[in-house]
Computed example of a mutant assay.
Amino acid sequence: MTILVAYVARPEGHAALDKGIEIATRRNEPLVVINAGPGGRDETGIVDGYEGERLAERLAGLPIQAEFKHFVRGKSTVEEIQELVDQLQVSELVIGLRRRTAVGKLLLGSTAQEILMTVSCPVLCVKAP
């Protein structure tokens, strides 16, 4: 079984990563951290080279098997996460949430909501402090 963390380079992503590391370490399960999106200039939360190196170093120092996957290949974030859930034996997916107004959720949609409705494994949603 594997713990999967959907990571974005924002406070909610850091909160999800911290919780995923905590759960994977406690359960002694492998950890896979994914940062994914379709690409494009307007995207936020996509990991750059420096952030990716820092993340890889942090994962390398863990007492469990951990790896970072970064995808910007035209698929949506939800599609990339769903593929990994289907490929790996994911015991739990950890995602970070940010606060949004009701109008913001209505107009912009919600990746978190789509993930919750799509994936076949348990999902833990965490908020940034």
Rank of each mutant, 00 (worst) to 15 (best):
H14W: 01
R10C: 14
A128S: 15
L108P: 03
T2A: 10
V72N: 08
L88A: 02
G13N: 09
A128H: 11
E79Q: 12
L93N: 03
I81L: 15
Q87F: 06
P30W: 05
R26T: 10
F68C: 00
Q65E: 15
R100W: 09
E43T: 09
I3Y: 01
L97N: 11
R100H: 06
T44R: 14
P129E: 15
T25Q: 08
T25H: 02
A36S: 14
N35Y: 09
K127M: 14
L97P: 07
E83M: 09
F71T: 04
Q82H: 06
A15D: 09
H70S: 06
V103S: 07
S76F: 05
G13I: 06
Y50D: 15
G39M: 11
V8Y: 08
L55F: 04
E83T: 12
R73Y: 00
D18N: 14
T77V: 07
G37V: 10
A102P: 07
E22Q: 10
C121G: 08
M1F: 03
A66S: 09
L84G: 01
L107S: 05
I95P: 04
V33W: 00
L107E: 01
G61A: 15
E114F: 00
K19Y: 11
T101R: 01
V47M: 03
Y7A: 09
S76M: 05
I23P: 02
G37Q: 02
R99Q: 09
I3T: 11
A66C: 10
L108M: 14
R100K: 07
V78G: 00
